[in-house]
Amino acid sequence: MFTERSGIIVWVNDLKAAGKHLEKYGNVHFISKKLHYAAMYVYASRLDETVKQLQRLPFVKKVERSYRSEIKTEYNSNIPDKTRFYTL
Rank of each mutant, 00 (worst) to 15 (best):
M1I: 06
M1L: 07
F2Q: 05
F2I: 06
F2M: 01
T3N: 04
T3R: 11
R5D: 08
R5Q: 15
S6P: 03
G7N: 05
I9W: 04
I9Q: 03
I9C: 10
I9D: 03
V10Y: 02
L15W: 03
L15C: 05
L15V: 08
G19V: 12
G19N: 14
K20E: 01
K20L: 04
H21P: 00
H21C: 03
L22Q: 00
L22V: 03
E23N: 09
E23P: 00
K24D: 05
K24G: 08
V28E: 02
V28S: 07
H29N: 10
I31Q: 05
S32K: 03
K33W: 09
K33H: 11
K34N: 13
L35E: 05
H36C: 07
H36I: 01
Y37W: 11
A39M: 12
A39F: 11
M40Y: 02
Y41I: 02
Y41T: 05
V42C: 10
Y43P: 02
Y43K: 07
A44L: 04
S45W: 14
R46W: 04
R46V: 12
R46Y: 10
D48G: 10
D48K: 15
E49Y: 04
E49D: 11
T50S: 10
T50C: 12
V51H: 01
K52F: 09
Q53I: 04
Q55L: 02
Q55R: 12
R56D: 15
L57Q: 06
L57K: 04
L57Y: 09
P58D: 12
F59S: 06
K61C: 01
K61W: 01
K62Y: 00
K62V: 06
K62Q: 08
V63A: 12
Y67H: 12
Y67M: 08
R68Q: 08
R68W: 14
E70A: 15
E70K: 06
E70I: 13
E70N: 15
K72H: 08
K72I: 13
E74N: 10
N76T: 04
N78G: 07
I79Y: 13
I79K: 13
I79P: 07
I79T: 14
I79C: 09
I79M: 14
P80V: 13
P80M: 15
D81G: 11
K82D: 14
T83A: 06
T87L: 11
T87H: 08
